[in-house]
Design a protein around this nucleic acid. Structure first.
Lengths: 172, 172
DNA sequence: GGTAACATGTGATTTCAATCATATTCGGAT
DNA sequence: ATCCGAATATGATTGAAATCACATGTTACC
């Protein structure tokens, strides 16, 4: 998509595929900054700088929408609702990332899986879920079984688990 | 400054000192979200939520300016430059968090420490550094020693390490 | 000067997730 | 209808980081 040092041409929305953002550090090593997945937006900060500070490389055939820098800047100045929407969206993203970081900070697989399920992260396949929370699928299945055995989770079907309702939550 | 769950009273500017933003997880662990240094602003995302979702604790005697939520909301509507500044700050934060997540996704202690040092995360104490990147200080010290032995890092002093410059960077 | 608190650093042991292996089930394509 | 690939699920082994333990160095304070 673009290279480190290129003049910024806008922000990007990844409709499908995969984009890897990498950056060459001062010591000359190339390091991964972010792996964008389907539905992600990236290079938001490029609105405010003249050149990209990382490479964006396709890791799979991808469909990408580019929104031009000029269009964004014009809209940000002229449309208050748009500006407010962008700001709020960024603020929410910050909170989401903090939540994800909190999750990743838990070392125990059981703790991590339990919290992740309680946060509603287990929607698709367990394989995806495992990848998202930084565990192998095997460790994930085992944690899910352990937590079900302990009564903290309830198995609602093949590959489906839900938090066991706490007694306080029950209504007459 | 404030505790997780307190009703939001505004955003903060750290004129001097140090503030550590931590979040207590359900299992009772305290994890570092952000280490604010002199000149940093923090709790920007609180503009759009009713309560703080982390603790802000002084790590040093600090001078802090609080800007009230009402004033912020008024200014966001009326001052374009101000609004732009806030948006930019949030965009940069999103990138920082993505970077931190990428860092936490590395399982090997050596890989993680090397990347973190290259990204310039080792500024203060190794203990703080270790906490920030999700390792114990012991694992951190060992990784730093390994990487120094391998020639990937250079020990510049007690508790001080820097990436070994790559040969390509040298100029005649 | 003395000492208390904390950072640096390393060695020994344990624990737990990664890895390897394998069986079963489900869904989509032929 | 059946063949194949992917997801689910679990057992055995291994390896690396956490934990425990301890020594030294540094800073701040009385």
């Amino acid at each position: 998509m673009f290279r480190q040092g290129d003049t910024t041409k806008g922000i990007f929305f990844l409709a499908s595929g995969g984009i890897c953002l990498t950056r060459v550090t001062e010591s000359g090593n190339s390091v991964t900054i972010y792996n964008a997945q389907t539905g992600d937006m990236f290079a938001e900060a490029s609105i405010y700088s003249d050149h990209y500070h990382c490479d964006a490389i396709c890791t799979a055939p991808s469909e990408v929408v580019r929104i031009s820098k000029q269009a964004i800047q014009k809209q940000l100045r002229e449309d208050t609702a748009f500006s407010e929407g962008i700001t709020k969206r960024l603020a929410v993203q910050v909170q989401d990332y903090r939540q994800l970081l909190t999750l990743h900070a838990l070392k125990s697989a059981n703790d991590r899986v339990l919290l992740a399920v309680e946060l509603g992260k287990l929607t698709g396949s367990v394989t995806q879920f495992a990848n998202q929370i930084g565990l192998t699928k095997e460790a994930c299945y085992r944690a899910l079984r352990d937590l079900s055995d302990q009564g903290l989770l309830t198995k609602t079907g093949r590959g489906r688990y839900a938090p066991t309702p706490r007694s306080e939550d029950r209504l007459p």
